[in-house]
Design a protein around this nucleic acid. Structure first.
Lengths: 199, 199, 199, 199
DNA sequence: AATGAATGAGCCTTCATTCAT
DNA sequence: TATGAATGAAGGCTCATTCAT
């Protein structure tokens, strides 16, 4: 119906299937059943399309991420929920994730480019949410005493990396989500820390 | 001297600097001080160059990874060494890593493509080494009882993801390496597990 | 006016002058006063141009050939008219004939290729028209009793070969057309056959 | 054994299979099991190869053509033998004929080029032989009174055209040779001419 | 005679983008 | 809003040919 949405949908399909660089605007137009010029009417440039997709996805991810973080008061529980949410989101938004995580075009990350600003902004937002949960956990003793910022970054990297490896390799590792939760739980758990001093 | 090496070096520089897609073969030839045709004499296609870089890097990485895994007999210590090695390697091979991890061209990962086969093969090789160390650790009680394969995959994803986020964001997080070692240590440590039953 | 026609005209000139392989698309564009990209907008590939020229010429040739065949009721007269027509057509369409008959690119004749199908289809169409005229002639006794299909093929080959030799050699043999008519007349004439049994 | 012959053989195969333009010197070298440079040592240029093939074939053709022309004293019989010989030769030298007759590269026929000189020279030689036989036939009354030069050209065109159509179309027309002999016989036969005035 | 690394000009084609309608 | 003809720069790649060994 909405031509703009038709373009976005067609573009998402093709980007996920062939990658951004290998998808031509003419292919998008054809798939969307639309004249090529219309794409530029709506999105100005080809990058405009992927930026739009990127923004939409990140906004949704962050909104739900934030909401999830607030559903649990206990810090450790919140982190665990966030991890579960991440993999759940990946399953529900396979295509968009594929686009953003797999082969995000290098040009779009040129220093100072709007895309980069968006991405870094959102990325640090995510890390901040994680960090706040960790700090909350340290305060409520559910999480042991550790550097919150670095740990948040590590967890973010962990989630990003596992999702990416899964996409790149088409691997199907069932229940990996639960195992990741356990993996992080063990590392963060404040109860163990109280009674034992590791290393 | 060796023209082939000159091409590889020039290509590495440019791929790392501008990305694969934005680097023209003519630019590579110019930088290498070589006729453009020679590139195709040696590498057949432009992709041939990056595949070559990829292979070389992976071979070196795996060789050293394997060697590192055997330097420590205790499972947990081995894992910790491997993590440290990973980040050390990243610092010593910043450029190659940048090329391979940041914007590896999507086309090369088409299902069934030789590149993909290589990459998946090497990837599972790395995971296997991790897995063996984990199993060793479980046997020697340095690592608690946990599913070795899944955990290996998680650690691989963790390392991959953190390296990638660092590259994408140009972030400088000093000592992240040590923090990752600690993060994993806490999650794996068998001594804690012996005395306390988490969850 | 029509850019597409301008391209076709420029291409015809150049193909006839230098041959297909030695004509670059950029030269065509320049001569047509058009951006090079427009060629591919209309014809997809360089071969697309020559295929277009080929089709147009063959369609015109066949249409007129067919019409000529019906203008004369007597079989032998029809054949003679067709022969005359062939050479007349050659003089009026020197350029297109040059392109198609002289150095039609070998690739286009690969078994199963669409071009080949077109060419074979048209070729057998021409032979069929000749065959029908011969059969008509046999019935009306203007042509002696002979194998119609084979004879049609021979006449087609005769016309094709003479035209080609003329183009290749730039030879100017005036009135060859009339001589060919006589040559075939003598071979086909039913009146002679009725009164004399050769061999 | 002989490297030069190996090159010629490989080139013949490939030219016949893919056409001259689509065959690279490197492909020839590979097929001949020889370094690419050696081709240029022997033949100077790529065209040199085809010129060599061309010359060899034409020389053989003409030698046998000439010899055939002299085997029969009666003019008409000579012509008929020549026609039969032509098709016989085509069957025995399918590959070489394919190269020369099917898609002889346009460049090689540029006015004044050595190839063109050779080809025109040989072509008129063939026509001359035909012409002499016709004149002989006119003298010995086996052939009716007709313009010898033009008729020779027509027969040459006839043979060339039929052979070419056969190659282009992969058509298998059995016994066409005999039919062509008959076709020409009827047209030339002096006996009929003596008793009947055609047209 | 024989090799094959090295050259470099040139070509077809793709593609994002513009613009008149 | 919508079209699609038209642009033109840029790029990967092929290939005949040369030359040092």
């Amino acid at each position: 119906m909405d031509r703009k949405q038709a373009i976005l949908k067609a573009a998402s399909n093709l980007f996920a299937e062939r990658g951004f660089a290998s998808t031509s605007t003419s292919a998008i137009a054809k798939k969307a059943g639309v004249a090529e010029g219309l794409i530029f009417h709506y999105f100005k440039t080809k990058q405009g399309i992927i930026i739009n997709i990127l923004k939409e996805m990140l906004e949704q991810y962050i909104a739900e991420f934030e909401q999830t973080a607030q559903q649990e008061l206990i810090g450790l529980q919140a982190i665990k929920k966030l991890i579960s949410f991440h993999f759940q989101f990946g399953e529900n938004n396979h295509e968009a994730l594929l686009i953003v995580i797999r082969d995000f075009p290098h040009d779009l990350m040129a220093p100072g480019s709007p895309t980069r600003v968006i991405l870094e902004d959102r990325s640090s937002h995510i890390i901040n949410i994680l960090k706040e949960c960790i700090e909350r956990g340290i305060n409520d003793r559910s999480i042991r005493d550790l550097p919150a910022a670095k740990t948040a970054f590590i967890i973010h990297g962990l989630l990003h990396g596992i999702s990416r490896l899964k996409m790149l390799g088409n691997m199907v590792l069932p229940d990996l989500s639960k195992e990741v939760v356990k993996f992080c739980h063990r590392s963060l758990d404040g109860f163990l820390a109280t009674n034992n001093k590791p290393e």
